[in-house]
């Protein structure tokens, strides 16, 4: 399809009505601080792992909350757990625990 210059991808829009919110609920329950994220992006900018692979913490929060949790599966494994994202977070989101919970949820 791509040779026609466009693709029909389900990820082109956010289908909120048919989102998969199981991960969102799981994280919401175990790490409520994730609700506080305002997508300021400080975490993604400072990310040590993000310099060498794709990893944008604030987008991970967004994807999960939009019911698009499949999008975070591969990204999340790039985390180096250094904790800088948490030190710069103005909202006190416990990002490392969120990552741990995602890994637990997906059993990866």
């Amino acid at each position: 399809m791509s040779k026609f210059g466009f693709k029909l991808t389900p990820s082109g829009t956010i289908n909120y009505d048919q989102g998969d919110f199981r991960l969102a609920e799981f994280i919401d329950q175990h790490e409520p601080s994730s609700r506080l994220c305002i997508s300021c992006g400080a975490c993604s900018a400072t990310c040590t792992g993000g310099a060498f692979a794709k990893l944008e913490m604030h987008k991970i929060h967004l994807f999960i909350k939009r019911g698009m949790s499949d999008n975070v599966k591969t990204q999340i494994q790039n985390c180096m757990y250094c904790g800088k994202c948490q030190l710069v977070c103005p909202r006190g989101v416990n990002n490392r625990n969120v990552i741990r919970l995602i890994l637990t949820h997906f059993k990866i």
Binding site: C40, G41, A42, C43, S44, A45, V88
Partner: peptide, 22 residues
């Protein structure tokens, strides 16, 4: 739109900012 997360110096002593263009 992005929050500054760190500020360092380069060799020319300019300030190098790391932000996320969200």
């Amino acid at each position: 739109r992005g929050r500054l997360s760190e500020c360092a110096l380069n060799i020319e002593k300019d300030l190098v900012l790391k932000i996320q263009d969200t």
